[in-house]
Design a protein around this nucleic acid. Structure first.
Lengths: 218, 218
DNA sequence: GACCTGCGGAACGGTTGCGTCTCGCAAGTC
DNA sequence: GACTTGCGAGACGCAACCGTTCCGCAGGTC
């Protein structure tokens, strides 16, 4: 939470305590406005108004807009939904389809494109978003991919991080560049099937890819 | 150019003609500031100052900030560099590597992330960018992929647009989310090799890849 | 009770940007 | 020369927002 009055634990029970519901209201209003208008267009007055809070209350907690937004983004958390029991392929499809769905329905999804341009001026924002939203999601993908290695669908020397980029990258790109029509539910399966084909264990170790110079797995 | 004084071709030689160099200066300054600060932070006064132009000159040409930026983005054009003679695989690698390099060196590349958040409020901006920058690049990728189909490296029923997303998506995504360290020159080859594996003609279709005609170097 | 801090509301001065306008001059046509 | 438009410079009124401050009250501890 990183309140600006960074008082240590020493003697902190004088006077009226802060209302924790206001903390939530402020952060919520900040995230909502961030999703709607982006960082540059977000104003302290709008946050105060939407949160139903005086500006003094804002500045008692945060030194300014930057700290407020950094703190708000740090509270984002998207627990990746549990998709289990299915095959590795179907699990990947479900996870990737969740990425597509959330990109214009969830709060974190709507914030993502706005952070992309804000990241140039405030790298901490993207860093925080990666830690709170992207990293858990990637961890879930990684677990499923590892399951694929165990079950023999994915080759053992796979670079998991790169594989995740191959899955999420095309989906995110499609969402971001806003082609018409927007991607539908079938896209996830197409991407997953393509990537799984690429990641399949090599049929014969002495493989002869006639086309390209053999990628020597360093 | 879509000047705001939308006079038809009728009787257009009264008074002092507009200085065409100022048009270029204005558009140039707009694009530069757009790349540096993004749409929301771009101000007419900054454009005028950077272009060495009075504000009246700006408003004589454009009705406001939105028209100015739309017009400026519409003048963007990135001719995809000619990469020929190599194999289909190497040509794709070269094109994708160009995407990576340009993303933080060229003007259009630096503008891209800023347009992503602006697109939510001004869809015409992204549409214009797609037409001027992305579409030519995609056409080049498409041509190379078609060459791959002809030479048997890529299966005939490939969905070219989707294949391009599979190539460009991961690269763009990596550039946008700004992981450290930033992607290096080796990423293009990894992506291309993965995608080409996925797009290879199905081996059990009775076709033996390695006796199929080698790529004609034309 | 005395004392402290939190709170909403509202106002403050200062800054920034918008879009308009005027001025004096330049560069063209008729 | 008369006329028209382009141009840079700068000022205009207007609006928004910043960060601060004061008020009066509420909600806590001692």
């Amino acid at each position: 939470m990183t309140a600006v009055t960074g008082a240590p634990a020493t003697a902190r029970q004088l006077g009226r305590p802060r209302d924790p519901r206001l903390d939530a209201a402020i952060v919520g209003a900040t995230l909502q406005l961030l999703a709607e208008s982006g960082y540059a267009a977000l104003t302290m007055e709008a946050v105060a108004a939407l949160a139903g809070v005086g500006k003094a209350t804002l500045y008692r907690r945060y030194a300014g807009k930057e700290q407020l937004v950094v703190d708000a983004v740090a509270t984002l958390s998207e627990a990746p939904e549990v998709v289990e029991g299915a095959s590795v392929r179907d699990e990947l499809v479900a996870r990737l389809e969740a990425v597509r769905r959330k990109s214009d329905s969830s709060l974190a999804g709507k914030i993502f494109p706005r952070l992309i341009s804000a990241a140039a001026d405030h790298p901490e924002l993207m860093r925080s978003y990666r830690r709170q939203v992207l990293a858990p999601r990637r961890a879930a993908f990684a677990a499923t991919l590892q399951r694929g290695v165990a079950s023999g669908v994915v080759r053992a020397d796979v670079d998991v991080e790169h594989a995740i980029d191959m899955l999420v990258g095309p989906m995110a790109y499609r969402n971001l560049i806003r082609t018409e029509p927007p991607p539908g539910p079938e896209l996830a399966a197409r991407i997953v099937d393509d990537v799984l084909t690429a990641l399949a264990p090599r049929p014969d170790q002495g493989r002869d890819r006639c086309t390209s110079p053999q990628e020597d797995p360093a």
